[in-house]
Nucleic acid binder design. Structure first.
Ligand SMILES: Nc1ncnc2c1ncn2[C@H]1C[C@H](O)[C@@H](COP(=O)(O)OP(=O)(O)OP(=O)(O)O)O1
Ligand SMILES: [Mg+2]
Length: 413
DNA sequence: AACGGTACCAC
RNA sequence: GUUGUGGUACCGUU
């Protein structure tokens, strides 16, 4: 039994409010910040709940923010007001409690107690069993294309409470605010709403049912779905049927650019590729490239500041990356990364010693961009710098990492 | 054990 | 300025 009262219960609402505040997200269209939430609900909580119970509550339009995607293109976020985030979170908690146990064991994304790691391990298992072709499938603009009527009729099968259904439908229909103008919405669920992930799981549950009925081996993380088969021919056939099912009956669109039949070592699933007949997962080159860019950025920003400050920024990044890719058992990645870091350190210290930030400021004032300024200083470094560089190479031994507290990507466990 | 914070990754 | 779900790691308070 899923009821509105369960959603609005004090414990559930308190937990929802706590979660939204812990996220420390930005304000929605009304400008109310998450810090103001306790006071806000103190004042308006009772009347908000009354409105919801009477079915008269209208959610505020979401604030539109466009952010860049890693591979180019933009992601349109829809940021609800802090108040609506609390209410949606409260609904999401109740829906998850009821629906999550009914979902497929091969669906891993957005689900409590399930991880990317498990999804990747499942892929590896299939490869090791000899399913050496993977049908990769990704949906185009997934959240933005969720069909309201299909979703609502699915919910109606499990929820009797008419007021709760009405509230969810209203959340689906909330407008999008772009520079003061409110735009109506008739499909999709906002990227940025706490409710969206669980709704998307309910939508794609049908896909899992479809795959299971056909006895196919799959592992799915949100809209990123892999089916493992023994031959390319079988893969082509599966992909064709899959596209027909998704576009025909689920009324979603397949992203053909990210879909296809591949050998595991050409595939990209959750930042990994797979090698050999055991399907050992490895960091995909693209993920490694992104880390390099980030390191470059940190070292660039650290110029003119202390080494200590650079290390403080660096450590969490290195820790995080290594823990995610620690199941990449070849040491090569981390050694390459280590060399990268040492090279950057050398440069950083070279600059820190040679030119205090006053020199850089002068260069900027003269209209030379910092990037160019650095290049010219490298070219004109001369014998003094070269002897320093040699010194540096010797300086970054293992004890350097110990002395400075810099996290070493090479140290295991 | 609980609670609080930071960071990384996936989508 | 950038939201959300989920996972992980680290640090802190009693
Ligand atoms: N940063 C994020 N914030 C909120 N929701 C996200 C975020 N990243 C991904 N999602 C959700 C919404 C997406 O529709 C869904 C699938 O992600 P993804 O496949 O990367 O994008 P997409 O399906 O919207 O566009 P594309 O056509 O590029 O695949 O996961
Ligand atoms: Mg997609």
């Amino acid at each position: 039994m899923i009821t509105l009262e369960e959603v609005l219960s004090p414990e559930n609402m308190r937990e929802a409010c706590r979660r939204v505040m812990a996220n420390k997200g930005a304000a929605g269209g009304d400008g109310t910040t998450v810090r103001q939430l306790p006071a806000h609900f103190e004042r308006h909580g009772a009347s908000i709940c009354a409105h919801i119970r009477e079915g008269r509550y209208i959610p505020a339009a979401v604030r539109r923010v466009d952010i860049p995607k890693p591979n180019g293109g933009t992601r349109m976020l829809g940021i609800p007001t802090a108040q609506d985030r609390v209410i949606q979170q409260a609904i999401a908690q109740v829906l998850t409690e009821h629906f999550d146990p009914t979902f497929s064991e091969f669906s891993y994304g957005f689900r409590p107690g399930r991880s990317v790691r498990q999804a990747v391990e499942q892929a590896q298992r299939y490869i090791a069993e000899g399913y050496s072709c993977v049908v990769e499938m990704d949906l185009a603009k997934f959240f933005d294309t969720v069909n309201h009527d299909r979703l609502m009729s699915k919910l109606e099968k499990h929820i009797e409470d008419k007021m709760l259904l009405r509230l969810i439908r209203r959340y689906l229909r909330t407008g999008i605010m772009t520079e003061g103008m409110v735009q109506a919405r008739d499909e999709g669920t906002p990227q940025g709403s706490p409710l969206s992930p669980i709704l998307s799981l309910i939508v794609l549950d049908e896909l899992d049912k479809y795959l299971e009925k056909r006895g196919l081996r799959f592992t799915r993380y949100a809209d990123d779905n892999n089916v493992y088969v023994r031959s390319r021919r079988a893969g082509e056939r599966v992909l064709e049927n899959l596209i027909a099912f998704i576009e025909g009956t689920l009324k979603l669109r397949v992203n053909r650019g990210k879909s296809g039949v591949f050998r595991p070592n050409r595939a990209k699933f959750l930042g990994c590729t797979f090698v050999g007949t055991t399907g050992a997962p490895r960091a995909h080159p693209k993920s490694f490239g992104r880390l390099r860019d980030k390191l470059k950025d940190i070292f660039y920003c650290a110029r003119g500041t202390s080494l200590r400050a650079a290390i403080a920024r660096l450590n969490p990044v290195l820790r995080g990356w290594r823990q995610y890719f620690r199941r990449d058992e070849r040491k090569g990645v981390f050694e390459e990364l280590d060399i990268h870091i040492r090279r950057h350190l050398r440069k950083l210290i070279g600059i820190a010693w040679k030119n205090p930030r006053t020199r850089e400021r002068n260069l900027i004032r003269r209209g030379i961009a910092p990037e160019r300024a650095w290049k010219s200083s490298v070219n004109g470094r001369g014998a003094w710098w070269n002897s320093k560089a040699l010194h540096m190479r010797q300086a970054f031994d293992n004890s350097f990492f110990k002395r400075t507290g810099l996290f070493s990507v090479l140290e295991m466990q």
